[in-house]
Design a protein around this nucleic acid. Structure first.
Length: 504
RNA sequence: GGGGCGUUAGUCAAAUGGUAAAGACACCAUCCUUUCAAGGUGGAAACAUGGGUUCAAUUCCCAUACGCCCUACCA
């Protein structure tokens, strides 16, 4: 069996959309599952839409996600160059072949002329029914054509499609898709203006030359797949044509339609893996990385948007996914992007991290807030409250009271828990705590204090809740004597005193 | 307008030609914790509609509706 070779072929027109990331992920999983190669090809045939920095962004994104390429731009390989703009001369050969075989023809119609035509004739399509009314090598004499080219007139090369033929595309995910060639137009394959092919030609030539075995791409390509099949046929490559698999789209969370950058801005979540600053406008778009996502959570979340392994398993490492992945289990319908579920994945991965690992991620945030703490102590703190956080940055909100004494107390909680007698009880408690040799052992302190409360006959709730209020400022957080152990005797007493002073 | 693809709870989704249609996120309740979170338990919530095939259809077929994608000298 031939070695599996798949490619991810983005266009460097801006930051990589999260839907593109999923497409790449599925390509990667498929290739690794079959011990094949995963190739990065840059499709920069549209000189107008080229955005500097986009290519580097793409490479950095996959690097962050842990998705590795075997070949391609910046990875090397024997099928290069992998940047289409560097393959100009190759495409010219194949354009010539099609021209020689009379399966394509030169056309001189300007964009303006085409626009007029479209305005004139509703549903205008450049095809067998109209091409003889246009300005091209089929309507012009050979001399005229040669003359125009010699004059330096811009032209394009269009594929010549015979009408009324059924073309069948075998799609791994959707089965057989049949389409009649009459609904296809004579697509532009090559433009003389920049001496570059369009996507359709470049993609067939490259996939063939790079010996791509499977084309796994977004559903938006399904309508042009028949054109691609035709191109393979024209070149005589049909027997080695790759297998197609068209992936369902990622849809916006509310309403319908393809997930877009605007949806992210509107609903407050990133649509790109990494933060991106538009070089022209300076506008910045949020990224998963900068928003505190773990790459493995993003991968897991994305993998499950359109695929599952048929079991109840939800947590998959990249290796698990490679092992489990199969195109048969990719769904046909689009998946709405559920950001809440994405957050849950991050939360789950966060909880599964070791306290040490989380502490070292959290340390810079604590330092930025102007606090110094030992690694060991922070590890302890993080362990106590990681279940309350979705992101590492959330940890600050949970941990702040360890570093900064409360300056105000939650109103509702005060009303409910701070009674007439509270101040005097807490004052006594402070004295009692002061009398303890130490409060380092949380369980021991708890027993001792509970005993004290019982002896006094105060009732646990009447003491514990106000105590929490004094220490934390609100009724939340880890076990209270875990808190006092970390705060230490002195600080604990100070905070009790402060609460008494402020709340009376 | 034309063409293609799709349609199971709010969302991701499983399974099945045959009596009660999984699971997860979100939501609600409850237990635990005298707090919050996490966790446990429970709850509400779905086969788009209409025909056909069949003893039997959510499952197969057709139509309709709805949605999406494509319809560029963009990919």
């Amino acid at each position: 069996m031939k070695q599996v070779r798949v490619r991810f072929a983005p266009s460097p027109t801006g930051p990589l959309h999260i839907g593109g990331v999923r497409t790449a992920l599925y390509n990667y999983l498929f290739s690794k599952k079959h011990n094949g190669k995963f190739i990065l090809r840059i499709e920069d045939t549209d000189t107008n839409r080229f955005v500097p920095g986009a290519e580097a962004y793409i490479i950095e994104s996959f690097n962050w996600l842990g998705i590795q390429f075997d070949e391609g731009v910046s990875f090397g390989g024997n099928y290069g160059p992998y940047r289409q703009s560097e393959r100009k001369e190759i495409y010219k050969l194949y354009v010539k072949e099609l021209l020689d075989k009379q399966l394509a023809y030169i056309a001189f119609d300007t964009p303006e002329e085409l626009d007029t035509k479209r305005a004139e004739i509703s549903n205008f399509q450049y095809d067998a029914s109209t091409r003889m009314q246009m300005c091209n090598a089929l309507t012009l004499s050979a001399n005229e054509v040669a003359q125009r080219i010699a004059n330096g007139d811009n032209y394009v090369v269009r594929i010549k499609i015979e009408p009324n033929q059924d073309i069948i595309v075998h799609d791994t995910i959707r089965g057989e898709v049949k389409i009649n060639s009459s609904v296809l137009d004579d697509k532009v394959l090559y433009k003389s203006a920049d001496e570059l092919p369009t996507y359709h030609l470049a993609n067939i030539v490259d996939d063939h030359l790079m010996e791509i075995t499977h084309v796994i791409r977004g559903e938006e390509w399904l309508p042009s797949a028949p054109l691609h099949v035709l191109l393979y046929r024209y070149f005589g490559w049909e027997d080695t044509m790759p297998q197609f698999a068209h992936l369902p789209l990622l849809l916006k969370p509310d309403g319908n339609g393809k997930l877009s950058k605007r949806d992210g801005d509107r609903l407050g979540f990133p649509v790109f893996p990494l933060q991106w600053t538009d070089p022209k406008t300076g506008d910045t778009s949020a990224g998963y990385r900068e928003n505190g996502y773990f790459p493995e959570a993003v991968v897991n979340f994305l993998a499950l948007l359109g695929w599952n392994n048929g079991t109840e398993q939800e947590l998959f490492s990249l290796d698990d996914l490679v092992h489990e992945f199969s195109l048969d289990r990719v769904s046909k319908s689009g998946a709405k992007f559920d950001y809440e579920k994405g957050k849950w994945f991050n939360h789950t991965y966060l909880i599964h991290k070791t306290d040490t690992e989380l502490a070292s991620l959290f340390m810079p945030i604590v330092q930025a807030k102007g606090h110094a703490i030992t690694e060991a102590k922070l590890t302890h703190i993080v362990g106590l409250l990681k279940e309350r956080a979705h992101f590492v940055a959330d940890l600050w909100e949970q941990a702040a009271f360890f570093f900064e004494a409360p300056t105000q107390y939650d109103d509702k909680a005060v009303q409910k828990r701070w009674k007439e007698t509270t101040a005097s009880m807490l004052a006594e408690l402070a004295v009692f705590i002061q009398s303890l040799p130490n409060i380092d052992d949380s369980t021991h302190t708890e027993e001792t204090v509970k005993q004290w409360v019982e002896t006094k006959g105060y009732g646990l709730g009447n003491v514990m809740n106000p105590l929490r209020l004094a220490l934390v400022g609100e009724l939340k957080g880890p076990h209270i004597f875990d808190i006092t152990a970390i705060l230490g005797k002195e600080e604990t007493i100070k905070r009790i005193q402060k609460a008494i002073d402020t709340l009376g």
